[in-house]
Design a protein around this nucleic acid. Structure first.
Length: 264
DNA sequence: GTCAGGCCCTGTTGATATTC
DNA sequence: GAATATCAACAGGGCCTGAC
C-alpha cells in the first residue's frame, strides 16, 4: 500500500537509492511548517522566541505562510500582542530576534533555508566560492561540483532548490536578507590542517565560541571522531566521542590545554 | 513568588554522501 | 567497498521568561 503524507494526504515518493519517503506537494502545510521551524531554529537563523509551537500558532492565524513572512511580522505587532500567552515583552523580544537574525552570515542563511544535503559545513564551503544568494542561485550543477565535499547529489539538490524557490529568494533579497560574506583574517595558523572534535560541556566558552576560535586559528571541526581526528577537546560530562577517541588513540585535551595551545 | 511552557545545549544514533 | 564525515532527528536536563 502506497504511503501518504499525514499533512496533505498526497502520495509519498522515494527517490532512487534513498531510504526516506518525501512529500512533493509544494503546498503541503506539513512541509511549510517544517521549513519555517527549521529556518528559525538554532541550526538555522537562531531566532529566539520562534519555536515550533509559535510557528504553528502564527500559521494558524495566517501571519506565516512562507519564510519571508517572518520578516513581515513587525507589521502585525498589535495583533501579535492579542495572542494568548504573548505579552508586550514577548512580542518585542520576538521582533528584535527577527531583526537581529538579519545580521547572520550567508552560510548561516544557506543552512537555514533547509536545502537538502546542505548543512553548516557545506554552506561554509559554498560561501568560499559564492558571495551572495543571487550568485549561488545562478550556479550550474557543473560549477557546484567544483566545490570541496559537494558531489552530484548535493549539487543537484542545490540547483533544484534555487530553481524551485526563485520567488522566495528574490523576496528575501527585497526584504534585505542578503548577507555579504566578510573576509576574516586568521589569528594564527597554529591549528592549520587539524581536524578537531568537541565533546562535553566547556566551562569558559560555548561550543559555538570554541568552533569560532578553532577556525580563527586555521583548524576545522568535525562532529565525529576518526583516525584522522587531530585531537578531541573534551569538557566535563564528555560522552561517547571521548570513548571513541581513547579506542582510536586520538589525543584528548582539556579546555585549559586548548587555550594554552592557541595562546588565549 | 510560583508555575508552566518553551527554549537552549548537548549527546546519541542511524542514514547517507563523499573520498580514497 | 571501506572508512570517514555530515546531516537530521530525537531525547533529556536545566534554564529562562511571561502570566497570574
Amino acid at each position: 500500500m502506497a504511503k501518504v503524507c499525514p499533512d496533505c494526504q498526497s502520495p509519498l515518493v522515494r527517490k532512487p537509492g534513498e531510504a526516506d519517503h518525501y512529500c512533493l506537494n509544494e503546498e503541503c502545510p506539513g512541509r511549510k511548517r517544517a521549513a519555517l521551524i527549521y529556518f528559525a531554529s538554532r541550526s538555522g537563523m537562531d531566532i529566539d522566541g520562534l519555536g515550533d509551537r509559535m510557528v504553528e500558532d502564527l500559521m494558524k492565524l495566517g501571519y506565516l505562510k512562507t519564510i519571508p513572512d517572518i520578516y513581515k511580522l513587525k507589521e502585525h505587532r498589535a495583533a501579535l500582542m492579542e495572542i494568548e500567552g504573548l505579552g508586550e515583552k514577548s512580542v518585542n523580544n520576538l521582533l528584535s530576534a527577527i531583526e537581529e537574525s538579519k545580521k547572520n552570515g550567508l552560510a548561516q542563511l544557506l543552512t537555514a533555508l533547509g536545502i537538502r544535503l546542505v548543512g553548516g559545513k557545506s554552506a561554509k564551503e559554498l560561501v568560499k566560492k559564492y558571495h551572495s544568494l543571487s550568485e549561488i542561485s545562478q550556479a550550474a550543477v557543473s560549477d557546484l561540483l567544483e566545490i570541496k565535499d559537494v558531489g552530484e547529489a548535493t549539487a543537484k539538490s542545490i540547483a533544484e532548490y534555487f530553481g524551485a524557490n526563485a520567488l522566495l529568494i528574490s523576496e528575501l533579497i527585497k526584504l534585505g536578507i542578503d548577507p555579504v560574506v566578510e573576509k576574516t583574517e586568521n589569528a594564527s595558523n597554529i591549528l592549520e590542517g587539524m581536524t578537531i572534535v568537541l565533546t562535553g560541556k566547556l566551562e569558559t566558552m560555548t561550543r559555538d565560541q570554541a568552533t569560532l576560535l578553532i577556525e580563527k586559528h586555521g583548524g576545522t571541526t568535525s562532529s565525529s571522531v576518526s583516525k584522522n581526528t587531530s585531537f578531541v577537546l573534551a569538557g566535563s560530562d564528555a560522552g561517547s566521542k571521548k570513548t571513541t577517541a581513547e579506542k582510536l588513540h586520538v589525543k584528548i585535551i582539556s579546555e585549559e590545554e586548548f587555550k594554552k595551545l592557541i595562546g588565549e
